Simulated scan of single mutants.
Amino acid sequence: MTETTPTPRVHKLDERLDSETVAKIVAEYEAGGSSESIGALFCLSKRSVIKILREAGIKVRYPRMTEAELRRATMLYNSGSSLVGVGNRLGREHSTVYKALKRARVRMRDTHGR
C-alpha cells in the first residue's frame, strides 16, 4: 500500500493567482460586479477580492445603504435588535449599519452597559 502525501494548500493570494486571473477580477469589478459576486465567481472571499483590487490600484466602491434600508435598519435597531442582528437581516456588515445609523443621527445604545 502506497501513501500519497497531500499537496500543501497555498494560502497567499499572490502565489495562488496569476496575473491573468487578477486582470479578470479587475475587469469584472470595473464592469460593475460586486466584490461578493466576484469572490463567488473566483472562489475567493469578499475581503480577498478587495485586497486584490487595492493592490492593483483600483479604487474600491463602498455602496451606501438605500433610504429604505436605512429606515428598516433604524426601526430594527430602535426595537432592540443588535447591530449584528440588523446587519444579518439586511445582508450588510454590522459596521456598515453602524456608520449609516450614525450618519442619520440615530441615538446609539451604550454597548458596555454604562
Rank of each mutant, 00 (worst) to 15 (best):
G57M: 11
E67C: 02
S95V: 08
L101I: 03
S82C: 04
T7E: 10
R72L: 14
R103M: 13
N78A: 15
K12R: 12
L17M: 12
K59E: 15
V106C: 02
K99Y: 02
E69L: 11
S35M: 08
G33K: 12
R89C: 05
A100C: 05
G113F: 04
L17V: 03
T21R: 02
C43Y: 11
R114P: 04
G85E: 12
F42L: 10
R47I: 09
R61P: 05
T111Q: 12
E20F: 05
V97L: 03
L41T: 06
S81I: 02
T96A: 15
S34K: 03
K12L: 11
R72N: 07
R92H: 09
T7H: 10
V84M: 14
V10P: 00
K12I: 11
K102T: 14
V106L: 01
S82N: 12
N88F: 01
R47A: 07
P8V: 01
G85N: 01
L101Q: 01
Y98R: 11
E20G: 10
R9H: 05
I25A: 00
V60I: 03
G39W: 14
L53C: 05
R89I: 11
G85M: 06
R107W: 05
R89W: 02
V97I: 14
V106D: 05
G32D: 09
T96W: 10
H94P: 12
M65I: 15
E69F: 13
V97Q: 12
G87F: 09
C43Q: 12
S19M: 02
S19G: 07
V106N: 06
P63M: 03
R107L: 08
S79I: 09
G33H: 07
I25R: 01
S34H: 02
A100S: 13
G33R: 07
R109W: 11
R105K: 15
K51S: 14
H112T: 09
E69H: 08
E15I: 00
E36G: 08
V49G: 06
G32Q: 13
S34Q: 00
T21H: 04
S48F: 09
G39M: 05
D110G: 05
R89Y: 06
V86G: 08
I25H: 00
T7C: 00
K59I: 15
F42Q: 02
R109S: 12
V26S: 00
E55G: 13
D14N: 08
T21M: 04
F42R: 03
G91H: 00
E55H: 15
E55L: 15
E55N: 14
K12N: 10
S95R: 14
V26H: 00
S45A: 04
A27W: 05
E67N: 13
I38N: 01
L83C: 09
V49P: 03
R92N: 08
I50Y: 06
L70D: 10
R64G: 14
S35V: 09
E36H: 13
S45T: 08
G39K: 14
L17T: 06
D14E: 09
H112C: 07
E15C: 02
S79M: 05
A31I: 10
I58C: 08
Y29F: 01
L70S: 13
E28L: 10
Y29W: 00
I25Q: 01
